[in-house]
């Protein structure tokens, strides 16, 4: 893993209104096959992607919110959610899906994937990445 690059996918758009959210998710899933060190960040309207209870049956679009739960299977375990963006929108962590990954080294113990960070903390995370992808 030492020569793996640190890939960060930055998600800043609401789901369904535009195609960015789903496109990002697909790229992340495809990219995960290349065994890089992948992180996701959700900020601005991107935090809306992770809300629970989404039901698209009335708008004739695919509900891809369950797919975020598969990220753990793809070894994507670092999901940063920006605190300021949540608060601005009247949301808390409780409004978001509970995303977990299983730690094989600890007998498949379930661990939280979502890390709530301030904008300043997120800036540090971004500074430590090798490649940034924006959606």
């Amino acid at each position: 893993m030492s020569d793996a690059k640190k890939f960060m996918y930055i998600n800043r758009k609401a789901p369904y209104g535009t195609i960015y959210a789903w496109e990002s998710l697909e790229v992340v899933l495809i990219g995960a096959a290349f065994e890089q060190d992948v992180s996701l960040a959700f900020m601005d309207d991107g935090v809306y992607q992770l809300t629970k209870g989404q039901d698209t049956s009335g708008i004739g679009m695919k509900n891809f919110s369950p797919t975020y739960s598969a990220l753990g299977d793809y070894e994507v375990s670092k999901i940063y959610v920006e605190k300021e963006s949540l608060e601005e929108r009247g949301l808390t962590l409780d409004d978001l899906q509970h995303l977990v990954w299983e730690d094989e080294d600890e007998d498949y113990a379930e661990k939280d994937s979502i890390r709530l960070v301030s904008r300043a903390e997120l800036a540090d995370v971004l500074a430590g990445q090798d490649v940034l992808f924006n959606f």
């Binding site: 209870g53 989404q54 039901d55 009335g58 509900n63 929108r89 009247g90 409004d95």
Partner: peptide, 29 residues
């Protein structure tokens, strides 16, 4: 999303007659 309370944009709706489309609310949880 503009219809949500405890949010920054909430005050934009002050004094207005507002409707919101249910299926779009449900899709977004």
């Amino acid at each position: 999303y503009g219809a949500m309370k405890n949010a920054k944009a909430e005050s934009l709706l002050n004094g207005l007659k507002v409707s919101v489309l249910g299926p779009d609310l449900a899709a977004r949880g």
